[in-house]
């Protein structure tokens, strides 16, 4: 393994804002009508797009192959990405539905699968 520069930072995100606003709304609903079940799109698991998930989670290990293998630009099949995210692989931990919902995972899989090889 060659020495690599650490990954750059600084891109802001709306990941925090949206779930928080949603959570306040849901909390208010729960207090008014506590018997109502929470909607399927509960806060915390929705992401803006695949690039955001990659930057905030995957990239810390996979960008430039720092810890795990490079995954961008390899045309990895979306079904394969889905399976690895949900089940983990060797030391890579799995990611739960509470962390990333199916819709967001589909966006992530598409983002990775269609990404260009830049590394």
């Amino acid at each position: 393994m060659t020495r690599k520069k650490p990954m750059g930072r600084g891109r802001s995100s709306t990941f925090v804002l949206t779930p928080i606003v949603m959570a306040f709304v849901l909390d208010a609903i729960a207090q008014v009508a506590p018997e109502n079940p929470a909607p399927a799109s509960a806060p915390g698991a929705k992401w803006k797009n695949g690039a955001e998930v990659y930057a905030k989670i995957c990239g810390y290990c996979h960008e430039n192959g720092k810890v795990g293998p490079v995954i961008l630009g390899r045309q990895l099949p979306p079904a394969y990405i889905h399976a690895v995210v949900r089940n983990g692989s060797r030391a890579m931990p799995p990611f739960r539905f509470s962390e990333i919902d199916e819709e967001s995972l589909a966006k992530l899989a598409e983002y990775i699968s269609k990404s260009q090889n830049t590394q």
Binding site: V16, P19, I20, A23, F24, D27, A42, P43, G44, A45, R96, S98, E99
Partner: peptide, 9 residues
């Protein structure tokens, strides 16, 4: 009991 979605700051 998974509280990941209970994530308000």
């Amino acid at each position: 009991l998974d509280l990941k979605r209970m994530n308000r700051i």
